[in-house]
Amino acid sequence: MITDIVLRDLTVRYGPTVAVDGLSLDLAPGKIYGLLGRNGSGKTSLLSVLASYRRPSSGTVTVGGVNPFENRQVMRQTCFVRDTLDVADSDRVGAVLSFAADLRPTFDREYAARLLDTFGLPAGQRVTTLSRGQRSILGAVLGLAARASLTLLDEVSLGMDAAARTTFYRELLADYLAYPRTVVLSTHLIEEAAELFEQVIIIDRGRLVLHEEADVLRGRGVTVTGPAAAVERFVAGRTVLSEQSLGGVRAATLYGRLDDADAARADADGLTVGPVGIQELFVHLTGAQR
């Protein structure tokens, strides 16, 4: 089941709070998406609708042209791992995996056991005794071994230490290469996960800020530094994300690629042009207005 996901005017409300606000989005199948947004930006609500964990307050979502809500074929092929982890706390790790294997036709129990080994998580340990990082690992194992055509991972790497995160990224990429599927990964650790993304979706306060190929986004932002007057002249008519001054020197972060003529002009004006990474760009796109 490799299918397109289409969201139209999606709104999720909790009483008076609007978590997702008229969001429209098209997701082509078989890609790894990075879903980026600050805390409370509506990421989890959006994923909950994609996973049929809740109905949208208004708007539509279709997966392969059909409404996924209570659709047996679609829901069976969807795996949503929340940071709160939906497992039986009294169970042992091995039992949690066996339970998933019983219910999910696509679940690879042997692969799950290999992943436990790789991460160093004992199958005999009870869920209640797991540390924050170990819970995150269990979530990652469940999400990977489910091999669901639509895999939604919400902040799964958050509690892991640096070594576990590196293992997680490597396993995610390796299994994705072997079993291509649609993966939506929401994370705050943008810098270290960014190279896995084919496309990046940035949402802020429930609205779509940007949906772009990750590699197009890299180098989409530039910083221009130099004498204040020259910087001001140069940035006129461009999208300025942020500005900083120190004495007579000004640094401006611009959104948009510079062509060769722009670069030559900046050079002639004595300006220094530098690149901006995806994480910096994200901070500028979602941080300034609050």
Partner: peptide, 17 residues
Amino acid sequence: TNQYAAFYQINPATAAK
């Protein structure tokens, strides 16, 4: 593309590009 992606830990679509 896939070997390249796995070796450098990048998305295969990026390597393909």
